Amino acid sequence: MSIKFSGWEALCDKSKHLKPGQAPKANHGYTMYHGTHKTTATTIISSGFRPSAGGTLGAGVYCSRDINKAMGYPGFCSANDRVVLKLRVRVGKVKKIDIQSQHLQTTWHQQGYDTAWLPAHAGLEEDCVWDPKRLTVVGIAHCTDSATKGSLEKLIKQEQKKLEGGQDMQKVTKCKFCGNQPQLNHTVEKCWECKDAICPFMDKHVCHKHS
Rank of each mutant, 00 (worst) to 15 (best):
K161N: 10
S146Y: 08
M169E: 09
P182N: 02
G139T: 09
K176P: 11
G150F: 03
T144R: 06
H186K: 05
V188R: 08
K171T: 13
T144P: 14
E126M: 14
H186R: 02
W192Y: 09
M169N: 04
C191N: 06
E159F: 01
I140H: 06
P182T: 14
C178A: 02
G179N: 09
T148I: 14
V137W: 05
L163E: 14
G179K: 04
L184S: 08
H142S: 14
L135A: 08
K162T: 10
G179M: 03
L152H: 09
K176C: 09
W130N: 04
C175M: 09
L135H: 03
D145E: 05
K171Y: 03
K162A: 06
K162P: 00
H186A: 02
V188P: 01
N180T: 09
G166M: 12
A141D: 15
K157V: 13
H186Y: 03
D131L: 04
D127Q: 07
L184E: 08
Q170P: 00
G165M: 08
D168S: 13
L184H: 03
C191H: 06
I156M: 03
Q170E: 12
C178R: 01
C175G: 07
E153A: 06
K157L: 14
H186C: 04
Q160T: 11
A141T: 05
E193C: 09
K149M: 12
Q167S: 02
T148V: 15
L135D: 01
E153K: 08
E153D: 05
N180S: 10
V172P: 00
V138R: 03
L152F: 05
C175E: 02
Q181V: 15
C143S: 15
E189P: 01
Q170S: 14
V172L: 12
M169Y: 02
K162N: 14
E159R: 14
D127T: 02
V138A: 02
K161V: 13
L152C: 06
W192F: 11
W130S: 04
E164P: 00
A197N: 14
S151Y: 09
D145Q: 10
I140F: 07
E159V: 15
K149A: 10
I156L: 07
C191T: 04
G166V: 06
E189A: 08
E159Y: 00
K174R: 13
P132K: 09
E159K: 15
N185V: 09
D196K: 11
Q167A: 08
K133L: 09
L163G: 01
Q183E: 15
K149Q: 15
T173A: 12
Q160D: 12
T136V: 12
A147H: 11
V172M: 10
A141Y: 04
K157F: 03
V129L: 13
D145N: 15
L163R: 13
V188C: 07
L135G: 01
N185I: 10
K190C: 06
D168A: 07
V188E: 09
T148D: 13
Q167N: 12
E159W: 00
E126D: 01
